[in-house]
Design a protein around this nucleic acid. Structure first.
Length: 513
RNA sequence: GCUCCGGUCGUCUAGCCCGGACAAGGAUAUCGGCCUUUCGAGCCGACGACCCGGGUUCAAAUCCCGGCCGGAGCACCA
């Protein structure tokens, strides 16, 4: 009860500006489907979705796949995906985000063509035949290119030629008239459509490729048309889009449309995590990462595999809010948010590591008068009961770190949690001899004995734990056999882990302490 | 280089628009205590910040100017 209310007590988002101007708040998330989502992309998702929810509005998912050449969309990431771009949908669903409408821009090319025509007719755009270099030279000195003064008729004729494949790549573009003296040269008459040869660079989606489009809208054009057509009222995006907003406002003006509210926030990085798509691709190719869900990565699927809960990510993003400055969230902040969710549900198990060389440390206990140990499933919730851990013989594996760290030495006393107190007699070649000195936990407490975890040799379960950059091996207690894949448990004195694969050996992914 | 935008405890954040009850609040981390058959969780306490310099004002974290530092953009990418 306490913990739940604490997680929910997280402060909400600040109000959105000018909500009263609109009948209903409409937000959207518009990813380029060229890779799975990561923590950075989760920010616009969560924020947009959360605001839509907060105002009982509408949330739209829109795939922006209008570049078949440079940022080629990826259709599938996993073999079992039935439909195109499913990996994005899965990431969103995992995050707990649901959308009211979904669009794919490559299905809407003809719509953009229609609005391009209108733009030309409203004298807001023109077909430019300058080479890239020539236009740049003119633009940088604030001069118009000769095509800017073409008549509407001439522009329409050239536009049709663009559509019908009459121009090769680079020979013509459709430009939006802006301000030739705008301080930012990239704003001056920006490109709305370019030519992409459908034979050389077919769109990855077969249904689109077969239409053989020659003219492709740029991001700024397609976004503006769609945002208007879909009735988006509040656009939340990273501040890398600041100049895009400037550019898009010219198009809104040409078309006679009201502009929505633009809200820009800084980038969000996660300390020590690789988020950059290009770095991930490079790392996978070079073999430094196993795949898109390598535990070193900040992709959502990597975090999920490690046992990070989507609720924690949501809390974190809402806590960070919409500030325009860049933030680097520390891993500890995420861990703290995550613990709030997993600590109350994670049952306790025991795991011991073997030594570096792969050999386990074994302790043989003289005078152990019992055949099982006992551990509460969760110490804070005794009502969940206790687990009996049978031990056929008085032989146990103990953690290599405890022995190597000096906790286990002749003459020293310690307590095997939930089992017994012992006095160590000797330590030789990975074999510890000890004798039981009673089971009383009060004794251990009074004497301040170190309390360590253990695993009975009979029934010990081989365990591997994948951590960022390393894999640790050891044994887990027999109770582990009843776990299912995806279960998150706590290994006592080790940390939280998620069961990833259950075979003869159990493979866990490490979350955090 | 040019054009924008930012700088509050180690980290994240509230406050800044509309100066005063802010000798700056919360979270997390750290340290100490309590509790506990985990070095977990919980509870209590401690530590800890307004980038710097000027100006305006009775009064500045809040307004103005300069500097420094950081970020984003400068594509026929999204």
């Amino acid at each position: 009860m306490e913990k739940v209310s604490k997680a929910e007590a997280k402060k909400g988002l600040p109000p959105l500006p000018n909500v009263e101007r609109y009948e209903r708040v409409v937000t959207r998330f518009a990813p380029n489907p060229d890779g799975p989502l990561h923590l950075g992309s989760a920010r616009p998702v969560i924020l947009s979705h959360e605001y839509a929810r907060m105002y009982d509005g509408k949330f739209i998912l829109r795939f922006e796949d209008t570049d078949p050449k440079i940022k080629r969309p990826i259709l599938h990431l996993d073999p079992d995906e039935s439909s195109e771009y499913d990996y994005i949908r899965r990431d969103l669903e995992w995050l707990g985000v649901s959308w009211d409408e979904e669009y794919i821009q490559s299905d809407r090319i003809e719509i953009y063509y229609e609005y391009a025509r209108r733009l030309i007719e409203r004298e807001g755009g023109y077909v430019c035949l300058c080479s890239r270099e020539r236009f740049k030279a003119l633009r940088d000195s604030g001069r118009a290119c000769p095509h800017r003064s073409h008549s509407v008729e001439e522009n329409l004729r050239l536009w049709d030629k663009m559509l019908s494949g009459g121009f090769k790549e680079g020979e013509a573009v459709l430009r939006v008239k802006t301000d030739l003296s705008h301080p930012d040269p990239s704003v001056r008459d920006w490109v709305a459509f370019r030519i992409v040869d459908p034979n050389k660079s077919p769109h990855p989606r077969p249904s689109v490729a077969e239409k053989k489009f020659w003219a492709w809208p740029t991001y700024n054009f397609a976004v503006t048309i769609d945002d208007h057509l879909m009735g988006i009222t509040h656009i939340l995006r990273a501040k890398e889009h600041l100049t895009n907003t400037v550019k898009q406002k010219f198009l809104y003006r040409h078309m006679g449309w009201d502009t929505p509210e633009f809200i820009h926030f800084g980038r969000m990085k996660l300390e020590g995590m690789v988020l950059s798509k290009s770095k991930i691709v490079k790392g996978i190719r070079e073999g430094r990462f196993r795949s898109w869900d390598d535990p070193m990565l900040g992709t959502l699927r990597a975090l999920r595999r490690r046992g990070i809960r989507p609720e924690a990510i949501r809390d974190l993003i809402i806590d960070v809010g919409v500030k325009p400055s860049e933030v680097t969230v520390s891993w500890e902040n995420l861990v703290a948010a995550n613990k709030r969710y997993i600590e109350p549900v994670a049952e306790r198990y025991m795991f011991v590591r073997v030594s570096k060389g792969g050999k386990p440390f074994k302790v043989m206990i003289d005078g152990l008068g019992k055949s099982y140990g006992q551990l509460p499933r969760h110490p804070s919730y005794p009502e969940r009961g206790v687990r009996r851990i049978p031990c056929g013989s008085p032989e146990f594996y103990i953690d290599a770190g405890d022995v190597e760290g000096g906790l286990v030495k002749p003459g020293l006393e310690l307590r095997l949690i939930g089992l017994t107190n012992i006095e160590v007699a000797s330590v030789k070649n990975h074999l510890v001899k000890a004798r039981s000195i009673g089971d009383d936990p009060e004794y251990a407490k009074r004497r301040g004995l170190p309390i360590v975890q253990w695993v009975p040799v009979s029934g010990a379960v081989p365990v591997r734990i994948v951590k960022p950059g390393v894999v640790e091996s050891g044994f887990g207690d027999p109770g582990l056999r009843s776990l299912k894949v995806d279960d998150i448990v706590q290994f006592i004195r080790y940390g939280f882990v998620r069961l990833d694969e259950a075979g003869e050996e159990l493979i866990f992914y490490y979350a955090h302490e």
